[in-house]
Computed example of a mutant assay.
Amino acid sequence: MKRFDEDTLEHIVKQVLQKKHIHGAVFHVSSGDGRKSLSGAAGDMDVESSYYIASINKMMVSAVTLKLIEEGRLHFTDALEKYMEPAHLKGLHVLGGKDHSKDIRVVHLLSNTSGLPCYFEDQPLEGNSVIKDLEAGMDQSWPLEKVIERVKTMKPHFSPGEGNRAKYIDTNHQLLNLVIEKVLDKPVKEVLNQLFSDLEMHRTYVCEDAQDTSYIYPYYKNEKRNISKFITSTQNDVISTAKDQMIFLKAFFNGYFYPRDKIEDLKKWNPIFFPFQYGIGIQKFYMPRILSPLKAVPDMIGHCGSTGSVAFYVPEADLYITGTTNQQANPSAAFQTLIKIVHSVI
């Protein structure tokens, strides 16, 4: 590992403020052995800032699911119908005139291979997608019942587990909420909050209070977006810090949820959208050498969110990186920063 200190990290993080629409950023970097642990922040964020982690919550929901699988309380091959009311399940996945809803397995939800419509990003029959409304400042609640209703009006992308097809679909992890709740007989928000307590992630919680102003709201271009109605309705959207995210990330890859020697089994990668692939509960950021001819970019495994939030492990360097650029309109800035950090270390 090259000489990499807090001044270097601070310099890299301050540089991201020059990117379009970036108003603040925070990153935490730690070596696998914990001997090096550094934080850097700039703009309207500091190293202790709380922020909305966006889709990194999917990795947390997946972690809980994988733990239940390892404990034998749940199985990859379990059908969704085992955990879902028949009336809710019927018509959830209708493609080519056939209802494939009973073919959906837990592994399909974990790996984004269910083919279900995405209630969040797909275009509905009428009006805008949920994400377009949120970007426009139209905040609204989306409880699971409403998600199910919306999905039943939309066309699926492919049949469950079809070939090597995958599509990044928010619906999958909302349905995993149901699975977890059925197995543990308690709300998923309680399960997640207990997890955070067990890991001593004292600044991390499922957002339940629409009046909560203790975290820095995500930006869309030059405006902060208060999306409290949305994130308090999902039961699994999380507020955290870069340091707390590091605790979770290290716990995941060191076997707290799923045995360390089985992590390789989760790396069954399918392309979702460049430059990402999806495995079982985890995401991979990769960069072909042709796009980085001067210096290779090593694979990074973990998860990211649409607001520029990141939580990745870099196996080649035994390095962990968490943080955010807190900007919905320019998520690529976070990955440019990730690459700079990694290239400064190896």
Rank of each mutant, 00 (worst) to 15 (best):
Y119C: 03
L291G: 02
Q235T: 08
Q283W: 11
M60L: 10
P331A: 03
T234M: 06
A210T: 12
C304V: 05
D139G: 09
G40Q: 11
I339H: 01
K186H: 12
V314D: 00
E85W: 07
H303A: 00
D139S: 08
N222H: 14
E126V: 07
K167M: 14
K189Y: 06
V345I: 02
Q336G: 05
Y119S: 08
D5Q: 07
Y52L: 07
I321N: 01
D7T: 14
H343K: 10
Y220L: 10
L110E: 01
K36I: 15
A54M: 01
N270A: 07
F274P: 13
T65F: 00
F312A: 09
V147L: 09
P187S: 04
Y313N: 08
D44K: 12
T325V: 15
D103I: 00
S111G: 15
I346H: 09
N222R: 13
E200L: 12
G32N: 11
H11N: 13
V183A: 11
L9S: 10
G281N: 13
T322D: 09
Q211A: 06
L338S: 05
S31Y: 04
H343Y: 10
K2N: 15
L199H: 09
R165F: 08
V191Q: 00
I104G: 05
I263V: 02
K132W: 11
S228F: 13
I239F: 06
E71R: 09
A317R: 12
E10G: 13
F285H: 10
I321T: 04
Q123T: 13
T204S: 15
M45T: 11
W269D: 08
S240D: 01
E6F: 03
P218S: 12
I12K: 03
H28Q: 09
L89M: 12
G127P: 05
S228T: 15
I56M: 06
K58T: 05
C207P: 02
Y215R: 03
Q235K: 05
E181S: 03
L192T: 05
L291V: 02
A63G: 01
K2E: 14
H100R: 00
A329P: 14
A296E: 15
E126L: 04
D5S: 10
I180K: 03
P293T: 05
D139E: 09
E121V: 00
M287D: 06
D46A: 08
L80E: 08
L178C: 02
N226C: 10
A242W: 01
H28S: 13
R150H: 11
K82S: 07
N270M: 03
V107H: 03
K221M: 05
Y83L: 00
N172V: 04
E81G: 10
S62N: 04
V13N: 02
T8P: 02
K284V: 12
P86G: 03
T77L: 06
R225A: 10
E264H: 15
Y258K: 14
K221T: 10
N222T: 14
T113Y: 06
L89Q: 09
L192R: 01
K340I: 03
Y168L: 14
A311S: 15
F274W: 12
